[in-house]
Amino acid sequence: MAKSYSNAYIFRFALIMVIIVATTLSVAFAFLKPLQDANRRIEKIMNLLQAANIPVDKDNADSLYLSHLIAEAMVDPATGEYVSIFRADGTFELGEERAFDVDMRKLVYAQRLYREGRSEDNPALPLFMIRGTEGDTLFIIPLFGRGLWGPVWGNIAVGADRNTIKGATFDHQGETPGLGAEINQRFFMDTFIGKRLFDQEGEFQSVKVVKGGVSTLPEERRIHAVDAISGGTITSDGVSEMLFDGLKSYVPFLQKAI
């Protein structure tokens, strides 16, 4: 420790270290990226199918997806019309954008710019139409938002009435284990089943994650709410916000006559 080093040596040392570390990491990243992307793809498919309550595991995810997919669509947020439809057989019936390829993080950012009037462009919304286990059509809406420590995301499966929730999945990058992290547990996701997005008057209500429990709410509100996870307040609020912001853009589509 008593040795003293010249500035040139310090600089050389730092430079060599940075080069070694950066090269190793970049090589490793370039080499591993295809494998990681494949894993992420499978996970995305599994989440979509789980939202539709279709039992799935890693090995049959691809084939199950193809057999249950009716279409991937892109929806115009202003009118609720389809701007793109991709069929399971690999052909485009309309447009040329696959809902599967939408980067939700970018979509949410573009929506925010539009809402704040900083961009003219209101991006099209991804939507998955999947045949459920009972042969019913489910609309699956992907969502993306922010929890306590990082992003949270999920899928909401809406029934053919375009109002009742038939299934939900949530996941997160790094919420507190045991608290906010519980949003990806079955017990929490299943509480969304049967909840409604619109009230009797057809007004959009979303579904709120309520601290203290649904039972504290007036009778008519309970259909639009689920119990929060105790101790996971900020994550729960993040999920509520994600549901409201995400689903609101789909209102023109959801309100369309079937």
Partner: peptide, 22 residues
């Protein structure tokens, strides 16, 4: 830590889902 995380993400995705939080 980043190396371990990247390798796990590629080869042991389930384990990495548990660990990447940390």
């Amino acid at each position: 830590v980043v190396m371990v995380d990247q390798v796990l993400k590629a080869y042991m995705y389930d384990v990495s889902r548990q660990l990447s939080v940390f």
